[in-house]
Nucleic acid binder design. Structure first.
Length: 585
RNA sequence: GCGCCUGUAGCUCAGUUGGAUAGAGUGCCAGUUUCCGAAGCUGGAGGUCACAGGUUCGAUUCCUGUCAGGCGCGCCA
């Protein structure tokens, strides 16, 4: 509809410029939906935009353009208002058309092909598998999965990926933590390191290890802690303490056994994360292993490539990447003086790999605390001669947790965090997803657990779901009265739907494809959530103002046809959000 | 100190890429059901869009500065 109006204005504009003999650059024609019904259905501001270059009064320009406007079967009235807006009023038939459109397209209504099948990779969550996901990860999971769904609905070929950090020091600390808990389970007595993973899930994993392998990995506590530097509480350094313990574990267990313990921890947690996300309605196409990248030599290859390109230099025994050449604030270490590659090195290789897999758009969704990391990754991408414009990093701000007025601390180490699983069990998948996605990602979010738990009726998701259930309920009521919905009769009587509530509803339904496309291209799922709330409100208002099932058979069928299309759109939008559309609640 | 994000109703947040009288939810007040689900609906009160300049027909939106809050500035991941 917008395009058709744009077309009309375009024709009028060319006549106008010819008449006035104007030789100016024409601005792009903008057609916007009006906020207020008093201003018609669509408005165009072209006259105001032309006022300056044409050196004419905007209202006069508008008058001339309107005079030159060709006839259209969709437009019932054109008005000039305010400083020079051109307002279009659609005919009733044009508004009613949307109902037929929705019912014929069904689930496909709203989807588009603007993405043209372009390959897009969306990487999100990618939390270290060192413990269960907490509520902070939940926001990234909800956001990432809805952004992915939106892109799919907009016609992109989407590949959803979780980058598994299964290599590196943090994972060694986890493996060591598992082993130490295992030793305690074997009856050894010692103080657990302050920098180890304290959560009870580590003990659970150790218990499984014990069940599976018995005391195969047991060593005396005195042997394990012999000559280990003191931990922080004893006046030592906690980092040195834990690293020494990790080396001791590798030494005492040997590579093969160490790997068994390590993998036990990794796999237990990864399985838990997989299951957690699946239950949260967050699906992935691929779980990409960092270790596979290291072991296949891809990381070394990337480093060699950078060396060959003269992007690395050696200083104090380490290899540095010249990221300052690309606008980063300082150069970054890629290979440490001990010969170990940094996490950043893996990430360089990983991003190169993303490009090599042929993605035209690469979307990384990170927690906002990683924002300082963006310049160096983009620098690396450029240094490897890739098009940095294809890479987009979206940041998700922190969700600050409250219990009532009290802020809840989160620390994976101490194990006192609130897990995503706990949240789901308390407020449900639907409410949690909707709540997370309801706010813009770049918006700091206050997540009050008390509110989400105790007053979940206030959560807008119920309001939207209720609208859907209510439509279903009307159709159930219909059957109970021995009647049925005749879609054809309804479609033939849409012209009966002339109430203000009905017009408002049809206008809302017609804007759904625009909202969906907008949300997809801008990666802003929250506008879809707000759209749903608006649509639900339009419906509830309509419901209260008019009786759908009445003695007037033709009117009844027309109204049923309208609310059936409302149901379809609510269902479509909720599906994109990964929220269920219940038939009754 | 430098960089990124944010500042809109008592509270939580929208604001369609610069448009017309700045909107919802929640909370508060007052109504609403012999009738399709009251998890609903109707009305009311509630604002210096942090502050000061600038850009222009027009600014909550863009630019600069100030103030306030969050986050980040490792040979950690």
């Amino acid at each position: 509809m917008k395009d058709q109006l744009k077309n009309l204005v375009g024709q009028a504009l060319s006549i106008f410029t010819q008449q006035q003999q104007l030789e100016i650059d024409l601005p792009e024609i903008q057609i916007d939906r009006t906020k207020d019904k008093k201003h018609g259905d669509f408005a165009c501001n072209i006259a105001m935009m032309l006022a300056k270059p044409a050196k004419m009064n905007p209202r006069q320009i508008a008058t001339e353009i309107v005079a030159a406007l060709p006839e259209s079967e969709f437009v019932s009235q054109v008005e000039i208002a305010g400083p020079g807006f051109i307002n279009f009023y659609l005919t009733a038939e044009a508004s009613q058309q949307v109902v037929l459109d929705i019912l014929s397209k069904g689930e496909a209504y709203g989807r588009s092909q603007v993405g043209q099948g372009k390959k897009v990779q969306v990487e999100f969550v990618s939390a270290n598998p060192t413990g269960p996901l907490h509520v902070g990860h939940g926001r990234g999971a909800a956001y990432g999965s809805v952004v992915s769904s939106l892109l799919m609905a907009a016609g992109f070929d989407v590949h959803r990926e979780y980058y598994v950090n299964d290599a590196g020091r943090q994972m060694d600390i986890l493996g060591t933590s598992v082993w130490l808990r295992y030793l305690q389970a074997c009856g050894e007595h010692f103080t657990f390191p302050s920098n180890g993973y304290q959560g009870s899930y580590v003990k659970d994993i150790a218990a499984e290890l014990m069940q599976e392998y018995g005391e195969k990995f047991s060593h005396a506590g005195t042997e394990v802690f012999k000559d280990i530097p003191a931990d922080e509480p004893e006046g030592g350094d906690k980092e040195m303490h834990i690293d020494a313990l990790t080396n001791r574990a590798k030494h005492l267990l040997g590579d093969a056994d160490y790997r068994i313990v390590f993998d036990k921890g990794l796999n237990a947690i990864l399985d838990d994360i997989r299951q957690d996300l699946a239950e949260f309605g967050t699906e992935y196409d691929e779980w990409f292993s960092e270790r596979s990248l290291v072991e296949s030599g891809v990381v070394d290859k990337a480093i060699e490539q950078l060396k060959a390109a003269g992007q690395l230099y050696q200083d104090k025994g380490a290899w540095w990447f010249k990221s300052t050449d690309y606008g980063d604030e300082k150069d970054r270490v890629v290979v440490r003086d001990n010969g170990q590659a940094t996490y950043f090195a893996s990430d360089i290789a990983y991003h190169l790999n993303k490009y090599q897999r042929g993605f035209e758009q690469i979307i990384d969704i990170w927690g906002a605390d990683h924002h300082g990391y963006i310049p160096r990754v983009k620098a690396a991408v450029q240094a490897m001669s890739q098009n940095v414009d294809q890479l987009k990093v979206l940041l998700v701000q922190f969700a600050v947790l409250y219990r009532g007025a009290e802020k809840v601390g989160m620390s994976t180490r101490s194990g006192e965090f609130v897990t995503l699983r706990e949240l789901r069990e308390e407020v449900g998948k639907d409410a949690a997803r909707f709540f997370y996605v309801m706010r813009g990602a770049d918006q700091h979010m206050d997540f009050d657990l008390e509110l989400a738990k105790s007053q979940s009726n206030d959560n807008p998701v119920y309001y939207v779901q209720y609208a859907h259930a209510r439509v279903c309920s009307v159709f159930r009521q219909l059957e109970e009265r021995g009647l049925s919905w005749d879609e054809t009769v309804g479609q033939n009587n849409l012209s009966r739907l002339t109430e203000a509530h009905e017009e408002a509803l049809m206008t809302r339904l017609a804007s759904y494809p625009e909202v969906l496309e907008n949300a997809a291209l801008n990666h802003t799922p929250h506008i879809l959530a707000h759209y749903l709330m608006d649509l639900a409100r339009d419906f509830h208002t309509y419901y209260n103002a008019h009786q759908f099932i009445s003695d007037d058979a033709a009117m009844t069928q027309a109204r049923l046809t309208l609310i059936a299309s409302v149901r379809q759109v609510i269902r479509n939008a909720l599906t994109v959000m990964g929220v269920s559309a219940p038939e009754s609640m």
